[in-house]
Amino acid sequence: MKYYANKVADLFPTIKKSGKYIEIEDVTAFATPEISFADGEVSGAGIFGTVNIPDIYNIEAMEASITAKSFSSGVIAAINPSGVDLRLNWAVDNIGGTYDTSYTAYTATIKGRPKNIPAAEAKKGEGLEMTINIACTYYKLVKNGSVLFEIDPLNGVLIINGKDYSKELNKALNK
Rank of each mutant, 00 (worst) to 15 (best):
N144L: 10
Y138V: 09
S65F: 04
K124M: 14
L88R: 03
L148R: 04
S73R: 14
N52D: 12
W90M: 12
L148T: 06
N89H: 13
P54V: 03
N80V: 06
A135V: 02
E150D: 09
S65W: 00
W90K: 13
A77Q: 08
I76G: 06
K69I: 07
A122T: 12
T109S: 07
N94H: 13
I53Y: 09
E126Q: 15
E126H: 09
R87N: 13
K143P: 03
D55Y: 02
Y138H: 10
F48V: 12
A122S: 13
A91I: 12
I59S: 01
V157N: 09
N80E: 08
L154R: 12
T67C: 06
S72A: 09
Y99C: 08
I151A: 03
A61T: 10
N89L: 13
T98E: 12
E126N: 13
D152N: 13
T137R: 06
N58T: 00
F48L: 10
Y57S: 02
A78W: 02
E121W: 07
G97E: 14
Y57I: 04
I110N: 02
R87A: 15
D164R: 03
G162L: 00
N94L: 14
G156V: 06
L169T: 02
T101K: 15
A78S: 15
G96S: 15
Y138A: 10
A91N: 15
A105W: 14
G83D: 09
I76E: 13
P81W: 04
V157E: 07
A122V: 15
K123N: 15
A119H: 06
A77I: 01
G96D: 09
E126R: 11
D85R: 07
I117W: 08
A105L: 15
G162V: 00
S82K: 14
A119D: 14
G127S: 14
E168G: 03
K123Y: 11
I134C: 05
I76T: 15
T137F: 01
G145E: 11
D55P: 00
S102Q: 11
K163S: 04
N58Q: 01
I134E: 00
Y57A: 00
